[in-house]
Simulated assay, not measured.
Amino acid sequence: MRICLLTPAPDHPLLAATTALLKPRHQVEWLDPGATDSFPDPDGLADVYLLKTRTPRALALARFLEQHGAPVLNSAASTGLCQDRTLMAQVALRAGLPFVATRTEPSLRRFEAAGELAGPVVVKSRTSRRHDLVARVDDATRLRELAERWADEPVVIQPFTPNSGWDHKLWVVGDQVFAGLRRSELAAGGTDKRTRPLAPDALPAGWPALALRVGEVFALDVYGVDLLDAGGGTPVIVDINAFPGIRGQAGAPEALAALALRTAAGSRPPRVAVGP
């Protein structure tokens, strides 16, 4: 089989470990969508593509590959959907998922000027990307500080969910669920990015099934779900990510390698989003 990684960083730990598992019997190559102005020859496409980047150029390439019959994990449509936090919330809530209530504002400056801040909220960039805005706002002073820096940023506003200060990170590869605990970046001392591995059976009842349901709703094959415990094991989904890093999770590279081969062989067609 020919497996192609769509990424600027094929040495990412998850991808490198997956490549090492595949290479003895399969051809693994990589392509940085941002480093080329042309698309591959439609007559020489790989058997499956793993989309580990979310730039506009990468999504355009993924759409091209899909249009010419190549399977892409995850699809361009599903990956794009997870970048728009407004559409993400709409799709999740319409499907009955316990997603945090989400309000959209065309700019942070406009929300600040309206003076409608009530209680602690979480302000996020509408478009999910590296180094985007994610901040807890407790008062008008903090909101004013953020508005000075992010004045024209389209944002979503979500009520702050009281919690233990730890994010439950659930990752899914195919039908396998992995889990970990990470200090919330919104909590005091939240600069620690290390993840504590957590056995799925140590999660509250129903959480692994909820993570799998997210994949069905968003047509994702490799993804992450960020959950908060709102009390008594009641989950609140605060974010969904297409093809996250999944670092330090024993068995994740094996699961990804197996998923890639099943998809390349046609025994598991990639899920395709039908739109918001």
Rank of each mutant, 00 (worst) to 15 (best):
residue 124 K to L: 10
residue 128 S to W: 05
residue 133 L to W: 09
residue 160 F to W: 11
residue 168 H to M: 11
residue 161 T to M: 08
residue 175 D to W: 07
residue 141 T to I: 00
residue 157 I to K: 05
residue 169 K to F: 04
residue 140 A to K: 13
residue 138 D to S: 14
residue 175 D to M: 06
residue 134 V to K: 01
residue 146 L to Y: 09
residue 177 V to T: 06
residue 154 P to M: 07
residue 158 Q to W: 01
residue 131 H to M: 00
residue 128 S to F: 09
residue 177 V to D: 13
residue 149 R to C: 13
residue 177 V to L: 11
residue 163 N to R: 12
residue 129 R to P: 05
residue 136 R to V: 10
residue 134 V to I: 11
residue 132 D to E: 06
residue 174 G to Y: 08
residue 126 R to F: 13
residue 162 P to F: 04
residue 166 W to T: 03
residue 125 S to A: 09
residue 172 V to M: 08
residue 136 R to W: 08
residue 133 L to D: 05
residue 145 E to I: 01
residue 168 H to L: 13
residue 178 F to M: 05
residue 145 E to V: 02
residue 162 P to H: 01
residue 141 T to Q: 07
residue 162 P to D: 03
residue 138 D to F: 15
residue 148 E to D: 15
residue 134 V to F: 02
residue 127 T to L: 10
residue 152 D to M: 04
residue 135 A to R: 11
residue 142 R to S: 12
residue 131 H to I: 00
residue 135 A to D: 07
residue 148 E to G: 15
residue 163 N to V: 02
residue 139 D to P: 14
residue 136 R to H: 12
residue 176 Q to T: 03
residue 157 I to C: 10
residue 157 I to P: 11
residue 126 R to S: 07
residue 168 H to W: 12
residue 176 Q to Y: 04
residue 134 V to Y: 00
residue 142 R to C: 09
residue 150 W to S: 06
residue 147 A to H: 05
residue 153 E to P: 09
residue 162 P to R: 00
residue 155 V to A: 03
residue 126 R to N: 12
residue 139 D to C: 13
residue 142 R to T: 07
residue 131 H to Y: 02
residue 158 Q to H: 04
residue 151 A to W: 10
residue 158 Q to C: 05
residue 178 F to S: 07
residue 160 F to R: 01
residue 158 Q to I: 03
residue 154 P to K: 03
residue 124 K to A: 06
residue 153 E to D: 04
residue 143 L to N: 04
residue 124 K to Y: 09
residue 135 A to V: 10
residue 172 V to L: 07
residue 139 D to W: 12
residue 170 L to M: 08
residue 147 A to S: 15
residue 165 G to D: 11
residue 135 A to W: 08
residue 168 H to Q: 09
residue 175 D to H: 03
residue 172 V to Y: 00
residue 162 P to I: 00
residue 159 P to F: 12
residue 149 R to Q: 13
residue 126 R to L: 13
residue 150 W to C: 05
residue 154 P to Q: 05
residue 126 R to K: 11
residue 176 Q to V: 08
residue 130 R to V: 15
residue 131 H to S: 00
residue 153 E to F: 09
residue 171 W to V: 14
residue 146 L to A: 04
residue 178 F to P: 12
residue 134 V to R: 00
residue 167 D to V: 08
residue 131 H to D: 00
residue 157 I to W: 05
residue 155 V to N: 00
residue 169 K to C: 09
residue 157 I to S: 06
residue 140 A to H: 15
residue 167 D to P: 14
residue 125 S to R: 01
residue 148 E to A: 15
residue 140 A to V: 15
residue 167 D to W: 01
residue 138 D to P: 14
residue 164 S to Y: 08
residue 127 T to V: 04
residue 163 N to Q: 09
residue 131 H to F: 02
residue 160 F to C: 08
residue 177 V to N: 10
residue 169 K to T: 04
residue 136 R to N: 11
residue 139 D to R: 07
residue 149 R to M: 13
residue 133 L to H: 01
residue 124 K to S: 07
residue 126 R to A: 05
residue 178 F to Q: 07
residue 157 I to E: 06
residue 138 D to T: 14
residue 156 V to C: 06
residue 153 E to M: 08
residue 155 V to L: 03
residue 172 V to W: 02
residue 177 V to Q: 09
residue 131 H to P: 00
residue 145 E to P: 03
residue 145 E to C: 03
residue 151 A to G: 14
residue 147 A to N: 10
residue 134 V to L: 07
residue 146 L to K: 06
